[in-house]
Design a protein around this nucleic acid. Structure first.
Lengths: 125, 125, 125, 125
DNA sequence: GTGGTCTAGACCACA
DNA sequence: GTGGTCTAGACCACA
């Protein structure tokens, strides 16, 4: 469900935060959905529970998740179901910009980059 | 010439290293090319000199740059001029994978993502 | 400068957060003031650095403190200097309410409670 | 009869314990007085029965309450009726100290704090 | 020197 | 079972 890369320079808790945000934005995580428990998530990704806990706490403090004592974290009820396509596109803009910078510095042609991306997007996950 | 983002979670020295690597890979930086001095670079990007110095040192230790006392850093002579397209494409693979993950979690269609990227690639820098 | 009680049921990081908030509210901590470093504070109060760090991070995320890499945390520049008396009084309301509840359950007279408080307020710290 | 605040950082069972102690200390709860059943109390305050049960058990183990199979918890017979004023005052000392700390950090005058407290103490519950 | 991230692991409050 | 707090301590990025 989530993909955490411990070798990335992006902190693990940050990776998780961003992914939860995106899945809420797209409506894949609707209000009320329970997230995996801190322990489960930590075990699944062989990561320390506190790392997951930190992500959850920050998501709670930004109002995206709700905590109910003794229960798993849930997507907050106050959130609208889904962002518009435009709003979601905006979320990948920094990644697109970084990709374009890389491609230019590597002098890769527009066609080459688009072809590669198309191949990966087409591939079923 | 280089773009450094102090707010990114990718360390600044790492950003610089990656950009130099890419420009050498593409042949934009050919053997013998001099790089800006640590001081200049630090000043231009309002970054601590040690940050630049660290990037240069690591690039030197991987053989991409050469240091000659009293002279600016230079692209090492022993490096072949340019990598093949395939080798350069391989360098953007992690970025493409991350982009595909984001797009899927945002439930953006293949067309939408390709259209956005195309727009950005087309735009002159 | 700060008083942290490890035996309180109020988490240590929370105690620190509240005290910083109050000192900013009163203008004792003005914008730009540097706070003790995480390590200093941890050492002074024989508390783990991460506990202090957590408090600082949360205060940063609520905009009260600013982080500048390699520098100590500072009171954020965007904050107004000082809250009104009324606004500051509001901050001790929950404590007053709890005190009144206690006094009533202990059947202490109004005079008794006021006398005790007066004595303590009068005492130089 | 009791006031439990689920949002406080003081654990609920701890809040309950303190309130029972105070009401016994003041003689509002005399030896033999029956307390609400765990179930009733839990229902009234929409709290988990185990939370109430834990408070009762701890109060029993400190000798303040007595458990008799099949009967409600009762205030223990061995307890003296009422503590002296001085002894009761001692119980609000930590609260007074915390209040004084807050007031100082908020730079509120002695008069201001006393006036506020007087107002609240005067108000009938 | 500064703060940040992470693991290992104990212990707590609550359902 | 759930999440939260805290310590001990390693290692990193940056000034």
């Amino acid at each position: 469900m989530f993909i955490l890369n411990p070798h990335s320079s992006v902190p693990i808790y940050q990776q998780l935060i961003e992914q939860v945000r995106r899945m809420v934005a797209s409506g894949q995580l609707v209000p009320g959905t329970e997230l995996p428990s801190v322990r489960d998530m930590a075990h699944t990704h062989t990561v320390h529970p506190m790392t997951i806990s930190k992500a959850y706490s920050l998501l709670e403090s930004e109002g995206l998740l709700e905590r109910h004592r003794g229960k798993p974290m849930r997507v907050a009820a106050t959130r609208r179901d889904q962002l518009s396509v435009a709003a979601r596109v905006r979320q990948i803009e920094p990644q697109l910009d970084a990709l374009v910078l890389s491609a230019r510095q590597l002098e890769l042609s527009t066609e080459e980059v688009l072809a590669q991306l198309k191949k990966k997007l087409g591939a079923k996950p």
